[in-house]
Simulated assay, not measured.
Amino acid sequence: MLTLAKNANALLMFLLELGVLAAVAYWGFTVSGNWGVKLLAGLGGPALFITAWALFGAGGGANATYPLTGLARAALEILWFGGGALALYASGLVTSAAIFSALFILNAVLRIVWNEV
């Protein structure tokens, strides 16, 4: 039963990672009335997030170019997932931002409790 819960939490983490990209893209495409700005922010924002995650956080650090551990990893996750929540908030989706934040906190606490960090 615990294995199932751990797998569900890993799935939640993956879905949250995808959620960050979707939130940043949504924010980018709604940030301005100018199509040039929309394209730059809507495509460039997620590209920057993908680059940061690939360099420092992919696969829990196992697949990252420069894997982070300890407090540096915690800071990366807070910035990454906080950025997704902030993008939702900035887009006017306050309830979605709160739910996203709560799910990230739940996921992080469970990973700490299960020593999966």
Rank of each mutant, 00 (worst) to 15 (best):
A90W: 08
S91E: 10
Y26L: 10
A85I: 05
N63K: 13
G33M: 10
M13A: 14
A97F: 04
L16F: 05
T65C: 13
A74W: 00
K6W: 10
L39I: 03
I112G: 05
E116S: 12
S91W: 07
V117E: 08
L40K: 04
G45V: 12
A64K: 02
L21F: 13
N34C: 10
L18I: 11
F14H: 13
R111V: 00
W35C: 05
L103H: 00
A52S: 08
L93C: 09
G61Q: 11
E77T: 03
M13F: 09
M1I: 03
A85Y: 02
Y89S: 08
N9K: 07
G61Y: 03
V31N: 05
F56E: 02
A108M: 11
Y89A: 14
A98L: 15
G28K: 06
F49S: 05
A74N: 01
A5C: 13
V24G: 02
F104A: 00
F14L: 15
W114R: 08
A22D: 05
L15S: 04
G84L: 02
A102G: 08
G70Y: 04
Y66I: 12
S101R: 06
A102R: 11
N9Q: 12
V113R: 14
T65I: 15
A72S: 11
P46C: 12
W80L: 14
G84A: 03
Y26W: 11
L4P: 01
I105T: 09
L16Y: 00
A8E: 04
L43K: 07
R111M: 11
G19S: 02
G82C: 12
G82Q: 13
A41H: 04
I112R: 15
G61V: 10
L71W: 03
G59N: 11
G36M: 08
W27M: 09
G70D: 00
F56M: 09
